[in-house]
């Protein structure tokens, strides 16, 4: 029994080692997001609390903690409380399989990419639950919009993942990274990378696809009735999801923890640092896009997802498969 407890203790230690950096980096990333947003629009952004305003998010979080949590009288209490918890848990749970280097991963499972895909497709529940349980019109409309949007874009993300998996021949995330040792998939699969990036924007409800929380139409979408810590949890889950999408993009297309080239000054930089650089690069693109593009109309959003991305990625899948088959480059299974 002692043995099991020891293993349990070790695992909890490891989990804390994954969770704390993610929570801290979520706080930092929110600051970065607002800062980039401000700089693009020739504003300063948060710059008062701490050096360069670095502690702004911590101050915000502190404020949320001390605010009163208001539960609407006609809300379904259980589901209302459950919704932010579901959102945040799902956003954090997905980090278990993200490899920061060959060995630095909490769970090196065989079906890592499927796990990521499953967890990100569950993310829609937090939103539907929150919108429905609030028992109010705007949150419900926001939740329905957001659910339809997330389900639509998940389809094209799934097909893009299949594209990459065809080239790799394994569902393990470390194998996916190692398969890109010669060539990052962003080069042969560049159109897929672009579509993945745009779908990731839609999947995380970021501008230009932030229809669920379009202020002018729906107040704040599904989070309208939330306050205090519960709102903060939604918001934390949202940003953890954005980071997760960036990590997924860098693993699938940018070679994960691999250096750009395996030459002297580049390969002494430790692997986790490369991973962080790539995640930050993708996040910077996310932040820039938030600042420079106007919001899509809902029918345009649906058209883009179903009529353009889905057929295009399907055709590209057939192309990739034919190319690999014709040049005999399909990954082999050792039996």
């Amino acid at each position: 029994m002692m043995e099991y407890l020891q293993i349990l203790g070790q695992e909890i230690y490891k989990i804390i080692f994954v969770l704390v950096p993610i929570l801290v980096s979520v706080a930092m990333i929110v600051w970065l997001d607002r800062r980039v947003w401000g700089l693009v629009q020739k504003r300063r952004g948060p710059n008062v609390v701490g050096p360069f305003g670095l502690f702004q998010t911590l101050a915000d979080a502190l404020k949320y903690i001390f605010k009163e949590i208001i539960i609407p009288a006609s809300a379904n209490k259980t589901v209302f409380i459950l919704a932010p918890i579901v959102t945040m848990t799902l956003a954090l749970v997905a980090w278990a399989v993200i490899p920061m280097s060959q060995n630095l991963v909490l769970a090196d499972i065989n079906v890592g990419i499927l796990y990521l895909f499953a967890v990100s497709s569950l993310g829609v529940y937090g939103i539907i639950m929150g919108g429905w349980a609030s028992n109010s019109k705007y949150p419900f409309l926001g939740a329905i919009r957001s659910a339809a949007q997330m389900v639509s874009y998940e389809v094209s993300i799934g097909i893009i993942i299949i594209n990459v998996l065809l080239c790799v021949g394994s569902l393990n995330l470390n194998d996916i990274v190692l398969a890109q040792k010669e060539l990052w998939y962003v080069i042969p699969l560049f159109p897929m990378f672009v579509i993945f990036f745009i779908s990731a924007l839609a999947e995380t409800n970021r501008p230009p696809f932030d229809l669920p929380e379009a202020e002018a139409e729906l107040v704040a979408g599904y989070q309208t009735e939330y306050s205090g810590m519960m709102y903060a949890m939604f918001w934390l889950g949202e940003y953890a999801n954005i980071l997760l999408m960036c990590a997924m993009g860098s693993i699938l297309f940018l070679g994960g923890w691999l250096p750009i080239m395996d030459i002297y000054p580049l390969n002494i930089i430790p692997a986790p640092l490369w991973m962080i650089i790539k995640i930050l690069f993708l996040f910077l693109l996310f932040a820039l896009i938030k600042a420079i593009v106007p919001r899509y109309r809902y029918d345009q959003l649906m058209r883009l997802g179903w009529k353009i991305f889905l057929p295009f990625s399907l055709v590209y899948l057939v192309l990739t498969a034919s190319f690999l088959f014709y040049f005999d480059k399909l990954p082999k299974v050792n039996i």
Binding site: I109, N110, V111, L114, Y115, F117, A118, S121, L122, V124, Y125, I128, I144, A147, V151, E154, L171
Partner: peptide
């Protein structure tokens, strides 16, 4: 593990969302 994940993706991620709707 493959079946388990597919169950999550297909049934929980898609079918149950429709039920809920």
């Amino acid at each position: 593990e493959f079946l388990g994940m597919i169950l999550l993706i297909v049934y929980v991620g898609a079918v149950a969302v429709l039920f809920l709707f």
